[in-house]
């Protein structure tokens, strides 16, 4: 690792000020940033690393006014262990528990998990080896290279000489799909936004956060999604690995097609530059399955297929479409099964 200055920020204001200056990056649990620094992947190596963990009051889990609120510095292990999360948003606890490995979960945070940089191996290659679009370059190397883990739903567009191009790195965060399915709202030092919108950006950053802006709280509103939400991940190993695909299905709020019934939310990670909302599958279910009891094997199958609508895979990652179909189908069938005593 090359040298850098280091600040243990005592307050949000101090951290924000430090980060507004050029050449500074924030670190929380370190799970993502330290690897990026060791791999020397930033085109401009940061002069200063600003530690956020030293800021008091950002590590909490509470249930207030029907909403579950988590401080951005809450560790994944605390979320996994929390009886409050277990009661009100069990899928969030399950997702936190399946991230990385036991020791890493003790230090990595929910905020860090949401803000992590893409895992694309071209982007991550040592010493900034590939001058890719995410670093301001003119190419996405995965587009023509080894893209077995990349997007099946197109790329994040960027302008390059010769016209529009796309970066096909994916969002592989453990918690994003579950939070989006739960209709979570993210609070930053300057605004409050829906979870999905947090990731809805171009290629030069992975979140909407601006310089000096910090994620402070994740709030899961009482719309019913949190209680019904389910989480499933697929990885090659049972520990350590990032998910190849992860997804959440939840029911809550108001069904536009069936008043008085909840609507469906389906969000899939690891398949697109942002967490992917499976709109066609949601609509199919909103129309045909106002109640979980309406789920038939045929409908579950059809929803899995609908979840891949709009996908165009590479030869090397077409397996992801099969996984989406299977995992959605199985998760829906599990939801339709009568609860065990």
């Amino acid at each position: 690792m090359r040298p850098f200055n280091h600040i243990n920020a005592a307050s949000i204001a101090e951290a924000g000020e430090a980060l507004k200056k050029g050449g500074a990056v924030a670190v929380a649990g370190g799970g993502d940033l330290l690897g990026a620094l060791k791999d020397n992947i930033f085109p401009e190596y940061p002069r200063t690393v600003v530690n956020l963990k030293s800021i008091p009051g950002l590590n909490y889990i509470k249930f207030e006014d029907g909403a579950l609120k988590l401080g951005a510095l809450t560790t994944l292990a605390d979320i996994a262990r929390s009886p409050i999360v277990g009661e009100h948003a069990p899928a969030l606890a399950a997702a936190a528990k399946s991230a990385s490995s036991p020791a890493l979960r003790e230090t990595t945070t929910i905020g860090g998990n949401l803000c992590q940089l893409p895992r694309c191996w071209y982007f991550r290659k040592l010493n900034n080896r590939f001058d890719c679009a995410r670093k301001g370059g003119e190419r996405c190397f995965a587009l023509t290279g080894d893209n077995r883990y990349h997007s099946v739903f197109g790329g994040a567009g960027f302008e390059a000489p010769g016209g529009q191009r796309a970066c096909v790195a994916v969002n592989q965060g453990e918690l994003a799909p579950v939070l989006i399915a739960m209709a979570a709202r993210l609070k930053t030092t300057t605004r409050e936004i829906e979870a999905f919108n947090f990731f809805d950006v171009g290629v030069l950053s992975s979140t909407v956060l601006e310089a000096g802006e910090l994620l402070t709280e994740i709030e899961i509103p009482p719309l019913g999604f949190a209680e019904t939400c389910r989480y499933r991940r697929f990885a090659f190993r049972k520990s350590i690995d990032f998910p190849i695909i992860n997804l959440s299905i939840a029911r809550g709020g108001e069904n536009p097609n069936s008043p008085g019934k909840p609507r469906w939310h389906i969000c899939i990670g690891g398949v697109a530059p942002t967490p992917h909302i499976a709109k066609a599958a949601e609509e199919l279910l909103n129309v045909n399955a106002p109640s979980a009891a309406d789920l038939t094997p045929e409908l579950a199958q059809a929803a899995g297929v609908a979840a891949t609508e709009g996908a165009r895979a590479f030869e090397s990652n077409a397996y992801k479409l099969q996984l989406i179909k299977t995992l959605i189908k199985r998760e829906l069938l599990a939801m339709s099964a009568p609860p065990a005593d």
């Binding site: 280091h6 243990n8 670190v27 370190g30 799970g31 330290l34 690897g35 690393v49 530690n51 963990k53 030293s54 292990a77 036991p102 020791a103 890493l104 003790e106 230090t107």
Partner: peptide
């Protein structure tokens, strides 16, 4: 808690 010392800055 278990912690990975390669992934933690000593200054923190």
């Amino acid at each position: 808690n278990p912690a990975l010392s390669c992934n933690i800055l000593a200054s923190e």
